[in-house]
Simulated assay, not measured.
Amino acid sequence: MTDQSAAESTTPVSLELWSDLVCPWCWISKRRIEAAIAAFERPHDVTLRMRSYELDPQVPVGEGLGVAEHLGRKYGGGVEGGRLMNAHVSDVAVGDGLSFDWHTAVRANTFDGHRLCALALEMGGPALQSAAYERFHAAHFSEGLAIDDHEVLQRLSAEAGLDERRVAAVLAGSDYADDVRGDEELARSMGVTSVPFLLANGRAALTGARSVDDYLALLRGVVTEGG
């Protein structure tokens, strides 16, 4: 698995990343995978597709409960205890150029957000889908916005580059629900019970947020083994 053999390979790499919009390790993982792709010998031969996964589909839409408060209630320690639970991931995120504000982050149902990410994939391919994920992640983790509020989603989607009329139509109906459910069913069929989960060329997988070097090694391994 050498840099040279990876450079000489003609094998394309298709990456699929199952993640949730309110999962901090998913955002970290996405950024590290993108860094690995940039460092890869043939970055233009790699595509990254985001796939939907809901960590808690039962979160009531519009609940608006602070993440720290929720964790404090669930595990004890109150709001401050909830913030302390997330201190480690916040420290890690800084190294990946990300900022988490647990004082303002609120719980949200992510189903509609995932539907809009599916719309983004159809409208503009992986690049637009990535932009939507980034905007929704930042809104949740850094800006304290409720990403299950339709007005918020409408604005964030426009900022990410999606067509406003298409977004409004999706939010008013059930379009792309099957896409979200399909991603989740595919994950279940592979035994996936947590995210982030990365699949390369349909066979090589990594679970959890790994280092950039780990993701780069996966890329090189897939192409040198012929896909």
Rank of each mutant, 00 (worst) to 15 (best):
V79F: 14
A105C: 07
A118H: 12
D3K: 11
N86I: 10
A118M: 06
A6S: 12
R220F: 03
S142L: 06
G144C: 05
L119I: 02
G113T: 01
H137W: 13
S19K: 09
L145R: 13
R49T: 14
D20P: 08
S29W: 02
Y53D: 07
H70P: 02
G64E: 08
A39I: 08
R42F: 06
R107K: 12
S194R: 11
C117G: 14
A38T: 09
E185I: 14
Y133R: 12
W25S: 05
D179A: 15
P196M: 03
R135W: 09
A205P: 03
S174E: 15
A105K: 04
E16T: 14
D214L: 02
D163Q: 09
F40W: 11
V92L: 14
P60C: 10
E122S: 14
R166I: 05
A87K: 15
R210G: 05
A168M: 09
L71V: 14
F197V: 01
S174D: 15
L17D: 05
N201H: 01
L128I: 02
R51W: 04
G124F: 00
A68C: 08
Y176T: 08
D45A: 12
A160L: 07
G77P: 05
V61S: 09
L219P: 07
V46I: 08
T110W: 07
A7H: 08
V222G: 06
D178C: 03
T11M: 12
G125D: 08
V223F: 03
C23A: 04
V79C: 08
A204K: 09
T11C: 12
Q129Y: 06
A177Q: 15
R181L: 09
D148I: 11
S52F: 08
L219V: 03
A39Q: 12
Y75I: 08
E41H: 05
H137R: 12
R188V: 08
E34I: 00
D148M: 02
P57A: 13
R220E: 03
G125N: 04
S142H: 06
H44N: 14
G144V: 02
A6K: 01
V67I: 11
D20S: 10
V192Y: 05
V61C: 06
A108P: 07
R31W: 02
P57F: 09
L171Q: 08
T193R: 12
V180T: 10
G97Y: 00
G72M: 10
V94P: 00
D20E: 06
R220T: 04
Q129D: 04
D175T: 15
S14A: 15
P43F: 02
Y53I: 01
S174P: 04
V152W: 01
A187H: 10
L15M: 03
V170W: 07
A93L: 10
G72S: 10
V106H: 04
E41Y: 04
L145Q: 13
A39G: 02
G161W: 02
A168F: 08
G227S: 11
F100P: 00
A158M: 10
L15R: 01
G97V: 07
E225S: 15
R166V: 10
T110S: 11
